[in-house]
């Protein structure tokens, strides 16, 4: 245990002395996590609302499909997207493999089922009469959706946080689509994977602490947003 502890202290020192590798990895993590959560909520919020407030043939099956996607292994997403982004794949021309944008594409696939399902659950929880009432009072469809969203903002923010936490902490997609390039696509999680490979366990744990701190700050900020 002592070797872990000593390494951990050493790692903390590196973190606080402003090791550029740590800041770079934290920065890349924030960038790709923020970007992918944003895109995933642009898909998931409307889709979740639609699923909760309408009924159509095959809705049950579609919901089960989305629930299955919640368990999509990240390495499989990484492999699939690699196939599409590789120069030999259909989107090879865009040169997105081993770039931060490449990571974001994979992360969006990971995150949109989360934002969708959370939104659907939150909106389903509202008394259906509230929606009817809003429509009866002459609110447009968009206006109604907006009112309901405000009603369940706690649930929606949970959707964003769950998605952010998931994408910030995953490692398979980031390493397969980003390539773990130092200062460019190296995220905190892929840096931890690398440090553990090198036997620098303490430093790895210190990096893990940085990641948890980032997620903690995000949760704090969103708590503030909820109260607005």
């Amino acid at each position: 245990m002592t070797f872990l502890f000593e390494g951990f202290l050493e790692g903390l020192q590196m973190v606080f002395q402003g090791n550029p590798a740590v800041y770079n990895a934290a920065w890349v993590t924030l960038k790709v996590s923020f970007g992918s959560t944003l895109i995933a909520s642009l898909i998931g919020l409307p889709l979740g609302y639609f699923l909760a407030s309408s009924s159509f043939r095959g809705k049950g099956f579609f919901t089960v499909l989305l629930q299955t996607l919640l368990g999509f292994p990240t390495v499989v997403i990484g492999l699939l997207v690699y196939g599409f982004l590789s120069r030999r794949g259909p989107f090879g021309f865009a040169d997105l493999l081993f770039t931060p944008s490449g990571i974001v594409i994979g992360l969006v696939i990971l995150a949109f089922p989360i934002t969708t399902m959370f939104t659907m659950t939150a909106v389903s929880g509202i008394d259906p009469r509230a929606r009817e009432m809003a429509l009866t009072l002459g609110a447009s469809r968009q206006r109604t959706a907006w009112t309901l969203f405000k009603e369940v903002r706690f649930g929606l923010i949970s959707a964003l946080l769950a998605s952010f936490g998931r994408v910030a902490s995953e490692v398979g997609i980031a390493i397969m689509l980003g390539g773990n390039i130092e200062g460019y696509t190296r995220t905190l999680t892929t840096a931890i994977a690398l440090e553990s490979m090198k036997g620098e366990f303490g430093f790895g744990i210190a990096l893990g602490l940085v990641l948890l701190t980032l997620i903690f700050i995000t949760a704090l900020l969103s708590r503030y947003v909820q109260k607005l």
Partner: peptide
């Protein structure tokens, strides 16, 4: 020029080259 080093095993490195990804 920035060099983006992608560290993998030799087998995979050659595969990436074969696919034109590096």
């Amino acid at each position: 020029v920035r060099v983006d080093a992608i560290a993998v095993g030799t087998g995979k490195a050659l595969k990436l080259g074969q696919n034109g990804d590096v």
